[in-house]
């Protein structure tokens, strides 16, 4: 499946080239036009079959969180900062691939034998961590990984029965859903797909993509937080694995258009596709930038629930993935200009 290739491709924000190449190959034959805009977004276009001209934007971001080399120690260790949100608790001892040659690296960690009392309970700060690429000196380190070199996790994609694991499911899961939608039949409206850059650092690619596309409405496709691991209090798991695609009503970046939310939920209910409403007020997606384009774009976000996003390895259910594709396809088949008509309230 395309998710394997997308997950294993390297594409930290601002350096999405490898993911872009995978996607261009994956969609070229299935669309009427595809181009790369000035920011690096992949914009694919597929004519509609209807007589009405309606422009619908589907967006998924190509970039993933990662690290960037910002300095060196005399002994040849790299100093790094995060690109996008990474929890430093997850980093010590992690394998990395550094730079365009995928140079292997390890995030340095003190052996357990040498820990002083209490030291093991402290959470490391990113500023204190070093990346070890085996360099013997500062000069060698600088040569192997010049300032500004990107690094990311090395996790391979794996199948675990009904579940798959891998890195960067946020948002390669969304990219894979979008590829599946592009590979299918045409819709009535003109479909403008945007595989965007730099979402993790401020929704930057989507902003210009939406300005250029000038859509009538938009769907952001995501891999989102599932926090359904055991808890000691009866509170929201944000989303749960196995409960179907997660529809956003409101997050930190925008409020979803109720007409689009209703289109999705009514379609799901009629066709018996499971769905869940994502815990409101959490996270932000490209829809936060898209809905502000020009005179405003009614928008919604639909996501595949994923455990452990922004970490070296995430996990999703293939059922949820397939149901997301199915729900999107069915909902888009029903989407017309009437969906966006407002009565007199």
């Amino acid at each position: 499946m395309i998710l394997r290739e997308l997950s294993e491709a390297v594409g930290v924000s601002g350096n999405e080239g490898d993911v872009r190449a995978v996607l261009l190959d994956a969609v070229r034959e299935h669309v009427d036009d595809v181009r790369v805009d000035t920011m690096g977004n992949v914009l694919a276009f597929k004519h509609g079959t209807g007589r009405q001209r309606m422009r619908v934007m589907l967006a998924a971001h190509m970039d993933e969180v990662g690290l960037m080399v910002v300095g060196y120690d005399d002994d040849g260790f790299l100093r790094v900062r995060s690109v996008g949100g990474i929890d430093p608790r997850l980093l010590p001892g992690t394998l990395l691939q550094v730079g365009p040659e995928h140079t292997p690296g390890v995030i340095g960690v003190k052996p357990i034998h040498l820990l002083k009392k209490g030291e093991g309970e402290k959470v490391p700060k990113l500023e204190g961590l070093v990346v070890d690429i085996g360099a013997k000196s500062k000069d060698e380190a600088r040569k192997l990984a010049p300032l500004g070199t990107y690094a990311t996790f090395t996790t391979r994609f794996r199948e675990l029965g009904p579940t798959v694991s891998g890195k960067a499911f946020d948002d390669r899961a969304g990219c894979a859903v979008l590829v599946e939608l592009l590979r299918g039949e045409r819709f009535r409206f003109d479909l403008h797909a945007a595989f965007t850059v730099q979402e993790e650092v401020g929704l930057r690619g989507a902003r210009v993509a939406a300005y250029g596309i000038e859509p009538d409405c938009a769907f952001a496709l995501e891999g989102t937080i599932a926090d359904d691991i055991p808890k000691d209090k009866d509170v929201s798991p944000t989303t749960e694995l196995g409960q179907g695609p997660a529809i956003t009503v409101m997050d930190r970046s925008f409020i979803a258009d109720r007409r689009l939310v209703n289109l999705l939920t009514s379609t799901a209910e009629e066709l018996g596709i499971p769905y869940q409403i994502k815990q409101p007020g959490i996270g932000g997606t490209d829809a936060g930038a898209i809905h502000l384009a020009r005179e405003g774009v009614p928008s919604v976000t639909v996501a595949v629930p994923c455990r452990y996003i922004h970490s070296p390895v995430a996990l999703l259910r293939l059922d949820d993935f397939n149901n997301t594709v199915q729900l999107m396809r069915a909902s888009l088949s029903r989407l017309t200009q009437r969906t966006l008509e407002r009565g007199k309230d």
Partner: peptide, 16 residues
């Protein structure tokens, strides 16, 4: 619309 969250409505209306 949507002033209290993101100032979205005024921004897009003014664009129009």
């Amino acid at each position: 619309v949507q002033e209290e969250t993101t100032l979205s409505g005024a921004r897009t209306s003014t664009y129009g």
